[in-house]
């Protein structure tokens, strides 16, 4: 198993390096930072000095080599905007995103497993039909729209919740509900489908012939076998959340990595963009390993 993790890690280093290369050159296509950071009437000498100070006067391939050298020494560059280590900026924002992602994915998985299982236990029942329609609606509603309508109704209209920012528990409610909605909708459909096929499996017949109680058949036998596809989809959704829910974080002014990423791109804060990419890529790598290990834990037939 450790050899498996090692193998995966070595593959991942290659892809992260490729990603960083791509990001390095692409960010430099967005334009010259000095145009943003210096006053409009700055002299040519001042611009040159700014460029020299930040290493922007060198040819871009040369800058890239310098960047790689620094990476080897774990120097991830300085943030132009905040004038401190870019990695520090990224690592400060990341926990905010993680908290949000963790709560959203836990909540949506738990709810979806409950609703999906009960729907599959009695297919065609009223509960099943309501769950199907609701989950489809949840899965298809665009989150930016839900977020804006949420602000309009609960913050602006009813004045129950704050529009954006952090601070109190009330600030959590809307971002979490918005981020939970789509994963919940998708997962209910996955759970229901997986449960229906599990409940039709021969081993369920065996359990019934043994006289196992119905709740145990549903939650002990069928659900346990349905978890694999659920973990696959939930893992995918978790990845996209860890990646930073860019739109939702921006709308609610949540100081997470998604918001940081988009702000840094707009402000041409190259070192911070690269650091956020490095942080999220590492997190996604760890998440994927965790999902693979979870597979092996859930299904004894899977061995690495």
């Amino acid at each position: 198993m450790f050899s498996y993790i090692g193998r995966r890690a070595s593959h991942s280093i290659v892809s992260v390096l490729g990603l960083l290369t791509l990001v390095f050159f692409l960010t430099r296509l967005t334009g010259d930072p000095s145009a943003l950071y210096l006053p409009l009437d700055a002299t040519a000498e001042a611009r040159a000095a700014f460029a020299r100070l930040n290493g922007l006067d060198q040819p871009i391939p040369w800058q890239f080599i310098e960047y790689l050298k620094d990476l080897l020494q774990l120097d991830f560059g300085q943030s132009l905007r905040q004038n401190r280590s870019a990695m520090e900026v990224a690592l400060q924002a990341f926990p905010e995103t993680l908290k949000l992602a963790f709560v959203a994915i836990t909540l949506s998985s738990a709810l979806a497993i409950l609703v999906g299982s009960l729907a599959a236990a009695r297919p065609g029942s009223l509960f099943d039909r309501v769950a199907s329609v609701a989950s489809l609606a949840g899965a298809s509603a665009p989150d930016f729209w839900v977020a804006i309508v949420g602000i309009l109704v609960f913050a602006v209209g009813l004045e129950l919740l704050p529009t954006s920012g952090t601070g109190s528990w009330a600030h959590w409610i809307m971002p979490i509900l918005v981020l939970t909605l789509r994963p919940f909708g998708l997962l209910v459909q996955v759970v229901r489908g997986a449960m229906l096929s599990a409940l039709a499996s021969p081993y369920i017949k065996t359990a019934r012939a043994k006289g196992v109680r119905r709740t145990k058949i549903i939650f002990g036998h069928a659900l346990r076998n349905s978890l694999l596809p659920v973990v696959t989809v939930a893992g995918d959704l978790a990845t996209s959340l860890v990646n930073g829910a860019v739109v939702v974080e921006s709308i609610f002014g949540w100081p997470g990595i998604g918001k940081l990423m988009i702000d840094s791109i707009i402000q041409r804060d190259f070192a911070v963009v690269q650091s956020t990419i490095l942080v999220t890529a590492t997190a996604i790598f760890i998440l994927n390993i965790a999902i693979d290990l979870l597979y092996a834990f859930l299904d004894p037939r899977i061995r690495y």
């Binding site: 021969p202 006289g211 346990r224």
Partner: peptide, 18 residues
Amino acid sequence: GRRIAMIFQDPLAYLNPV
């Protein structure tokens, strides 16, 4: 299971794999 029990054709499919 107590008074009537049953076994089936394909024991791999009829046993819970997990």
